[in-house]
Nucleic acid binder design. Sequence first.
DNA 1: GCCAACGTTGGC
DNA 2: GCCAACGTTGGC
Length: 159
Amino acid sequence: MTARKRYWLMKSEPDAFSIDDLAKVKVEPWNGVRNYQARNFMRDGMQVGDGILFYHSNTKVPGIVGLATVASPAYPDDTQFDPKSDYHDPKSTRENPRWMLVDVAFDRKLKQVIALDEIKLHAEELGEGFPLVAKGNRLSVFPVTAAQWKLLLSLEKKS
DNA sequence: GCCAACGTTGGC
DNA sequence: GCCAACGTTGGC
């Protein structure tokens, strides 16, 4: 019994980890997520093979820059146990890990960035609740419906 | 359990 | 670099 393919959006600051970095390493453990909602999506929602929109945040032209695939089931984020890591969480133990991640595999880089500005023009079709067009959103991992996925990717060809 | 203080995110 | 939004922490 195979679950139906789901879709997600994952943000990354290109200064920290960009789509080009992912293209180079091919597969990357998505470490450093320290938000419970985002963690829950990775832990409870993601299935191997799901589609990922790779989003660059905190940069000159924020937007969707590539496609990736969920490449592993969720497992504990090792950086939480490492006192030297920026992501260290002293309250987390190996017996009862607090933070989970999935591996993310490179699929392709878009020919052109689907800029947040462009995405905002379609706020109505995407729906008020869509995090990228909602006010004050900071969630770095969230689900995308098949319809939203299709709409967003159709913006690539247009430009 | 409330809520003020604080830290972080991320667009601009 | 600024600052609004918002999640987390900790005192009470």
